[in-house]
Amino acid sequence: MKKVNIGGVPEHFNLAWYLTLKNGEYKDQDINLRWHDYHGGTGAMCKALRSGEIDMAVILTEGVIKDIIDGNPSKIVQTFVESPLNWGIHVAADSSFKTVEDIKGKRAAISRYGSGSHLMAYINAKNNNWDLEKDLNFEVIKNLDGAVRGLTEGKADYFMWEKFTTKPIVDDGIFRRIANFPTPWPCFVIAVREDFIENDGDTLKTILDIINQTTSEFKSIPSIDKTIANRYEQELEDVQEWLSLTEWSQTVMTEDTINNVQNQLFDLNIIPKKVDYLDLIHKI
């Protein structure tokens, strides 16, 4: 049986992986797929891909594109979630900050450099015409639990994370969300180490076929909204709103979309250069 390690965030976007694993669909194809939760998000997964700790990752588009350009020996094999990620901008519940303008120049909590929370702080700054040198400051907090501590203890001033994931923390009166905005591109892709693509292409294709079958039917699974609400401790109406906004993909990202991501990251000095489409993408 072929062992394959895959990483992702322990969030509702990835429930389809849990369901296919629970059903034994990979084992039926002689594949021992091992899922690893990465609470540290994209930055932690990029590091794990580089080291060979995992073979595959379900990862934020902008983060893995940056890391591949920076030398990560991986390629994007397909889009996983076609819709944008809805980022919430959060402050401590008792903070004096009320608007996005109030956090200009303040300290952004980020899971790590190169993470989605780090890169989206730049996108937010650009959208608000801030000075990227003077108006951005960062405090590394590792994960969501670290963000809770960082904001409540005053070590950081604001934190950007997917708004439905943080909604229970807002509901509990720990965070207050002052704004939200969607990413200007599809949010999650599946990235795979190049050596795995070269040596285990058939295994990879089988894994993608299985997960794509499930995501294509995901919204029609009976009581899927209740399953998500219970598993991720979300309010049912929040889950239903999230499902209405979220579209999965079973295809590779287009060259136009890849170029859009690169153009924005390059303009923000997040990447040092733009590369060819096929330096980032591998078509199965």
Score class of each variant (00 low, 15 high):
N260A: 15
N180A: 04
P84A: 13
I65L: 04
I89M: 12
A44G: 05
D279R: 05
R50G: 03
D28V: 05
F80D: 04
T20H: 06
H90R: 02
V64Y: 04
M1E: 05
V261P: 01
W161A: 04
E25A: 04
A108P: 03
F218D: 04
S96R: 12
F181T: 15
I197R: 08
I123P: 09
L144N: 14
K27D: 09
K106W: 08
R176L: 00
A16G: 06
D225N: 02
S216F: 13
L151G: 06
E247N: 15
M45V: 01
Q29N: 07
L85H: 10
E82D: 13
R177E: 15
H90Q: 13
A179L: 11
A93L: 10
K219L: 02
T206R: 14
D131A: 00
T183W: 13
T214W: 05
I221E: 03
G146P: 10
G105T: 06
G8S: 13
D195T: 06
R149G: 10
E217M: 10
E101P: 09
F175E: 05
V261F: 11
M160F: 14
D30Q: 05
Q250W: 01
D102G: 03
E53H: 11
H39W: 14
V192E: 06
I110Q: 07
I228S: 06
D70S: 01
E82Q: 11
L60R: 13
E11R: 09
Q264R: 07
E255W: 12
R34I: 14
I31W: 08
P73V: 02
N199A: 07
P73L: 01
P184R: 11
A179P: 11
P272Q: 08
Q240E: 08
S117Q: 08
F175T: 00
E233Q: 11
N128F: 12
W17P: 00
V9S: 14
N129Q: 14
T99L: 08
T215Y: 03
I190M: 07
T61V: 09
V252E: 12
I110F: 11
W185I: 03
N124E: 15
D225V: 00
L151E: 02
K98H: 10
Q264Y: 09
K274R: 13
V58W: 15
L85G: 15
S96E: 12
K75G: 05
E241N: 12
V189E: 06
R107N: 09
H118E: 09
E11W: 15
P168Q: 04
T251A: 06
S115Y: 06
